[in-house]
Design a binder for these strands. Sequence first.
RNA 1: GCGAGUGUAGCCAAGUGGUUAAGGCAGAGGAUUGUGGAUCCUCCAUGCGUGGGUUCGACUCCCAUCACUCGCCCCA
Length: 441
Amino acid sequence: MAEPIGAQRGTRDILPPEIQAWQLMEAIARDAFSRYDFAEIRIPAFEATELFARGIGGETDIVGKEMYTFTDRGGRQISLRPEGTAGVVRAYLEHKLYAGPLPLKVWYQGPMFRYERPQKGRQRQFHQIGVEVFGSAEPTADAEAIALARDFYQGLFEEISRRRPGADLPELVVQINTLGDDRCRPAYRVSLQEYFRSHASGYCEDCQRRMETNPLRVLDCKVPSCEMLNGAAPTLEPCPDCQVHFDAVRELLSAAEVPFEWNARLVRGLDYYTRTVFEIVPRGASKFGQSTVCAGGRYDRLVSDLGGPPTPAFGWALGQERVADLVLAALDDTSATEAGLPLAVGPLAPEATVQAFQLALQLRRRGLAVALLPQASKPDKHLKAAVRLGAHYLALLGADELARGEVTLRDLHARQQQSVAASAAALSAAMAGPQPAPAAP
RNA sequence: GCGAGUGUAGCCAAGUGGUUAAGGCAGAGGAUUGUGGAUCCUCCAUGCGUGGGUUCGACUCCCAUCACUCGCCCCA
């Protein structure tokens, strides 16, 4: 026998019991998007490597060492997308969507790829849901998008609680910060670097490297000694415009009743962010593990950096695996399925299989969900099977029934059964308002 | 890329140098000629991730390798 081939490292199959968590989150996300007037966009899973290098930043780890990059048969440099924003911006420019009504608000969902060591909350192929807003520099765009993310989680958690009262759900915290813009960030970078260099010996090795390559990231270090030094690090002095913008975003969030915390040390790993950045994290879990459950911010330079007209923009993304973990933990892994199967149909004798098959299909064509027990078997086997499938009714079709042109319709909940004419219409009617007869011996 | 842990059946596992690799769950068949998750009986690893080595003898000790898990880096 040939060796079976397993899934590739960092990839996984999402099997039927788990998929309900995904369908739930996607349904609730779609609902939130439509209420916030975001349209779906679908873009390719691979792009020119150059797009990501220019968009995300050539110095970032994502581009430097985590991309799935290859040369295709035509000699093109191709990369599997490590995130969604660059591709959406590319589509925005390619189809000249900036010529249409602005702001343009879109959302996407799909697989992303990063060559990393897999661990909790991180896969090589993972899935994101994200949004982008193009063409609005207004603080309302920031606040609207953040409120959307929070409403999504609010709605998701409400639905989980409805399905499983008392479900164990984490408290989610919105953290926001401003990174300034071209006018105020360079000076901040310099003053940060000066501070770090003068305290360099107290920082961990990674931070000593980061303070030269990406000083803002030092603020995000979780090493206790670094955190202590960071407490005294200079904070951004926003230019007047950035200050006004940040104040307005916070005011709007308050007006929207979105609780948030200002975290002056919050930074992001991608180069393109300006002004507002935010993260949603479960309270108490932010110190360890991959717990961030939504992150994004404003990127006012990216569109022009990628060759488009100057276009302010805002976006975020959430990792679906991380959300699915939350959902499944809250539902406690029990497949808390909604409304089970209405009917199973099973032949009791080989000569009844065609009729049973036909009946099942006729009922399905009438709009009923029906499980067909494929092989003729004894009643007790069918009963067991039907119960296991979660069926409400079981229609049994054997030699006796065949002779009379009837089926035995058993109500598995009431443990009662009756004879019904062997037609889809009669069965539907009997299930809609059955007149139960006493159970057979 | 670095560090740690774990690999025995579909799942959970006992076994820590000695003969035939416990047990439970799930599954299959039967007791039961057409009526429910019960009970009882039977079946279900020529093999302990893979490849070497040590030994009279290896699931057990050693080395390598692979996979998974967790952490670091980084990120959703």
